[in-house]
Design a protein around this nucleic acid. Structure first.
Lengths: 213, 213, 213, 213
DNA sequence: AATGAATGAGCATTCATTCAT
DNA sequence: TATGAATGAATGCTCATTCAT
């Protein structure tokens, strides 16, 4: 946020870019990639259609500029959790809370991200697909680090850390989807809290089992 | 005119219909609804473009013929699990196994289903949206029944059955997504088995806790 | 109607042909040439789509089979009027009455005919266009004969008989169109009667003028 | 921003619009609504197919833009005739002359108008149909006013004014059709003059009859 | 004779992208 | 920079016509 050095050449351009991104996010998340039109995005941003192409060279690039931003935020969160001091459970707890807040703060981003993943490979250019897969790999790796620590600390059962992290990720994403589909019938915060309490329960049980039993 | 039992009116037409469905499944699951074209589907099936419209009156109808089939299969599984005799854990175990087999057997169907859920509902006609929501409701209801039984039997923690079933569904769907995205880096069978072992663990622990501990 | 000699080879075929014509008339007159479909005509006739092509080799030919029939009936009427004994006014009077009855009897035919004329040249194959123009020429010629007689008899003003017949034809067709467009707001019988009374009035005035003054 | 009187916002756009209308008129009047294609119209105008949709949102809208223009011109003529000072015969005479000139000036418009009337109304959207019927009603009403005056002045026989105006309209339209079908065999100007002379004749005869005779 | 499944040319319309101003 | 008019490839769908049975 704080920009000390590396000042951009043109603050006006930056502003416009933000306005476009805002508009694009709104339209893409509401309609999905295919049904969103460049015209509508430009209109929403209050600019002419042609101007969009001064900032991004294609619809696809604009789309991925948003996706990239979302991914970076999420990845940063997971990596920050991994590098924090404290027990694995503490890390997971902090991460769960932060992720939930991120989701609620940027619901449109979540929808966008989800839709994009469903489009999958064939829809987009190889360069973007690669970038995407790279991001997923990094996220899983960071998460796996935490899970490994948890297994070592005995707060998660001694299963393959990679699969455990896949399950964790799956659980979070699965609940996210239900919340995105119909937030009135599934409250993500409550779901996440329930999930966290399971984790703690598993941790306590596991410890008791390993120390006393 | 005289129709012996189970004889279809026109076996050739039925065959063709199957061929078209096969082709449509392939194309839709690979490209999603919007990027799939009727031409490509027809070509894939080895017929002319217009012929498709002899069997289905629109792209949407063809699409939902597939979706419907998938849904019915899945729903049948969950409802059958719910109506089986035995403990809740046994039901869940059986269901998990069957679902996994279903997924492996019809991977393209899964992809199709997932992509469909990422589409904005406004994409489709109200009649289909309604049908869709009805299916989801029924599935959740059946699952909730099993989960309620599990809570009563003490094999799941005494939490809200609805949220528990959402979590379960989320977990399964979350893992499904990872498997769909890259089956080489996540084996769904192994993931499901791991999840089932957690369930069993929870069940045993819970029982022990409630009886003695 | 009465067919004594010249029996057709196949009475069943004749019957079918009539059924098809009936259906075609209904559909064409209701929807016009372009919006009518061969499928609907066949369905209306209670036969399969392909069968139509056993009787007519194209949509166009079927259409003109109907047009031709209408034209022949009309032409016959005019020619019969021309060859009757009696004064020109009597001929016109008889003809007017018969035409009106024909119109009321075959309203669908009229609609069809009108629509066809509006489609005009470019729509149809040269052979049919030629046939059409030939029919119009013959009709006008017959009418012109009667009008010439009327002028000679002094019951129509001494103007160019060709233009007089064009006017007469125009008047009849113009009223026909209004009746076809909305029969509830224009009663063709009443219009024709009014027109006939004008003719008689002109005739009497003309005679009085020429004889007495 | 500051717009001097009568200045259009965009003269270039207006020009293009005219070019398109010109082309559309040519194609529609030659082929009718159904057989005319947007591609051909665009080609005729020397633009790309998609550009048409910048100016009109559909084929139908473009079509009715032309129809509307024609109707307004005709209606204006009739209403102006009705509100002129002078006798009914003078009004009819002036109107007849103006209409003839209008027809000769915009022959394509006439063809267009005629073809349109032969289309089934169901072809078009309700809004346009309504607009259309409203126009017809207003035209008939204005004409009826003049005819009523003529009857009162004794220059037309004492018949129902509504039917008289229908006959007049029918006569004009009937002659118009013949002229449109083949201008070389029927000169509309001559036909109209002949019709006018009949009117005058009727008027004089009527007056003589009513005054003394 | 009769059929109905198959075909593919044809059309209205959309929309990402370009480019002259 | 900014624009919006222009473009044309792409697509869902229709329907006259054919043809194997």
């Amino acid at each position: 946020m704080a920009k000390t050095l590396g000042m951009r050449k043109n603050p006006v351009k930056d502003e416009r870019e933000q306005a476009f991104k805002q508009a694009a996010l709104k339209v893409f998340s509401a309609k999905g990639y295919h049904r969103a039109t460049m015209s509508e995005i430009a209109l929403e941003a209050g600019f002419g259609k042609g101007t969009l192409y001064w900032y991004w060279k294609s619809k696809e690039e604009l789309y991925f500029a948003l996706i990239r931003q979302m991914h970076e935020e999420f990845l940063q969160l997971v990596e920050e959790a991994a590098s924090r001091p404290g027990s694995a459970l503490e890390k997971l707890g902090w991460m769960g809370g932060e992720i939930t807040e991120l989701y609620y703060r940027d619901r449109d981003f979540c929808k966008l991200s989800w839709k994009m993943r469903a489009e999958e490979l064939e829809t987009f250019s190889p360069q973007y697909v690669e970038e995407l897969q790279d991001y997923i790999k990094r996220t899983k790796r960071a998460l796996e680090g935490i899970v490994k620590q948890a297994v070592e600390e005995g707060s998660l059962p001694p299963a393959d850390p990679y699969y455990l992290s896949c399950m964790l990720l799956g659980l979070v994403e699965g609940m996210e989807i239900q919340w995105l589909e119909d937030p009135s019938s599934f409250d993500l915060r409550r779901g996440m809290e329930l999930a966290m309490s399971f984790l703690l329960f598993l941790g306590e049980t596991g410890k008791r089992a390993s120390t006393g039993g």
